[in-house]
Structure formats: structure tokens, C-alpha cells
């Protein structure tokens, strides 16, 4: 317990927690916002290269993060994005977007086109169809994508280590500081690691309640 107290009342714990929350939540929101629109576009509109884009987005996800750490550091330095939360957020959005698009693409495909046509006849413009019909029906997909994105953004270590400094570092990076030249402070390290695990757990429980299967049941013939 002493270790927990030490960790929590450490002067910079609060700041790192806020950093982590900002990065995790903002990255998740931006990813979902862009992801659902891109997925809808891929699923519903035909344009040149649509299939290629739909199937290659996922391949980007197979690149190990450590591989992009160095080039990203160079570019971010040029753009003065290192040591800022924005730089980290942008990177997490980029890393998570392909998977989110791919996941939501499948959900959008399952929404019967007739529902959108019925809505068009009922008086919805395309934007309203998206907001009032499509979004509510892919809610389980949005929740699943949010869980994945938030957890990756929250737990990610290597890029966060490279791209942050004393004031912008996130909790996983902070935890690594307990590994010092003169030894590892196991107690504090474990205490912080346990604390880090809590928010994603809570978040996952909240989001998973949205993942109700069969949400489109009853739309079309059973």
C-alpha cells in the first residue's frame, strides 16, 4: 500500500494521468469520427480504387510500431510536433484508423440499403441518413473500435517514449522511469502498472455494453 501511496501522491502522477487520458480519449474520438465516415464512403459509394483501398488499409496495420518510430521522430521534429500531446494523438489516429475503417466497413455493409432508401423517401438528406439511420445501427462496431483504439493509445510505449518529454509523457513511459541505473523499484513499478490497467478495464466495460448483437434484427425479413 505504501507503494501505491508513493506513486499516487508523487507530484507528477496527476500530470501523466491527464496526459494519458487526453491522448487516449482524443485519439479515440478522432479515429472513430474519421473511421466511420471513411467506412461508410467505402461501403456505399463507388469510386476508382475503392476495392483496393478497402483491402489494403488493413495491411498498414501489420507494420511494427518500432519500425516507424525513427522516421516519425524525424518528421515530427521538422513539424515541431515532438514533445507535444498533439503529435502523439495524430500518430495514434494514424495507427488505429486502418483497423477501425476495416471493422466499421463490415458493420456498414450489414445495414440493409433499403433502410437508407426508405429514409431518403421519408425525407432524409444523405447526411441525415448517415446520422439518424447508419450511425445508430453500427453502434456496436463503434464501441468495439473505441475499445481497441483507446487501449492501444493508452498502453503504447515505444512511440510515447520517443516523442514525449518530462511534461508530456504518458503513464507507461512514467512507469519505465522506475527502472533506474541503481536498480529497479519493483514495488512502485508494480503499483503503477496495476493502476494503469484500471481505466481501460472500466472503459471496456462501459463500451462493451453497447455491443449488443443483432441490433439490425427486425429491419428486414427475419
Amino acid at each position: 500500500m505504501e507503494n501505491y501511496r508513493d506513486v499516487i501522491f508523487d507530484s507528477s502522477f496527476g500530470r501523466y494521468l491527464v496526459n494519458s487520458l487526453i491522448v487516449g480519449i482524443v485519439a479515440t474520438l478522432i479515429t472513430l469520427l474519421l473511421g466511420c465516415m471513411a467506412a461508410y464512403g467505402l461501403a456505399r459509394f463507388s469510386f476508382a480504387g475503392r476495392k483496393t483501398i478497402a483491402y489494403t488499409t488493413l495491411m498498414l496495420r501489420t507494420v511494427p510500431l518500432a519500425v516507424i518510430a525513427v522516421p516519425v521522430f524525424m518528421i515530427w521534429s521538422d513539424w515541431r510536433l515532438t514533445n507535444s500531446l498533439l503529435g502523439l494523438i495524430l500518430l495514434y489516429v494514424a495507427v488505429n484508423l486502418p483497423f477501425t475503417i476495416w471493422l466499421l466497413y463490415g458493420f456498414v455493409l450489414q445495414v440493409p440499403v433499403e433502410l437508407e432508401e426508405a429514409a431518403a423517401i421519408d425525407g432524409c438528406r444523405p447526411w441525415k441518413i448517415f446520422l439518424r439511420i447508419v450511425l445508430p445501427l453500427i453502434r456496436p462496431g463503434l464501441a468495439a473500435a473505441a475499445i481497441f483504439t483507446f487501449r492501444i493509445a493508452w498502453n503504447e510505449f515505444i512511440l510515447a517514449l520517443v516523442l514525449t518529454d518530462r511534461s508530456t509523457r504518458t503513464l507507461p513511459v512514467a512507469a519505465s522511469l522506475f527502472v533506474t541505473d541503481i536498480g529497479v523499484e519493483w514495488g512502485k513499478l508494480m503499483a503503477l502498472a496495476s493502476l494503469i490497467a484500471l481505466p481501460p478495464l472500466i472503459f471496456t466495460f462501459l463500451a462493451a455494453r453497447q455491443v449488443i448483437s443483432g441490433l439490425t434484427a427486425g429491419a428486414v425479413k427475419g
Binding site: P112, E114, L115, E117, A118, A119, A120, I121, D122, G123, C124, I133, P136, L137, L215, T216, A217, G218, A219, V220, K221
Partner: peptide, 19 residues
């Protein structure tokens, strides 16, 4: 546009809004 044609349509698979 469809909504300004003064028509209503019943679809083969009903197309009810499930939510």
C-alpha cells in the same frame, strides 16, 4: 428528390428502422 415527389413506398423486405 424522393421525399419531394409526394410518394410513399413499401419495400419487399419492409425496411423498418430497427432502432
Amino acid at each position: 428528390r424522393p421525399d419531394e415527389r409526394d410518394i410513399a413506398m413499401v419495400f419487399q423486405n419492409y425496411a423498418l428502422y430497427p432502432h
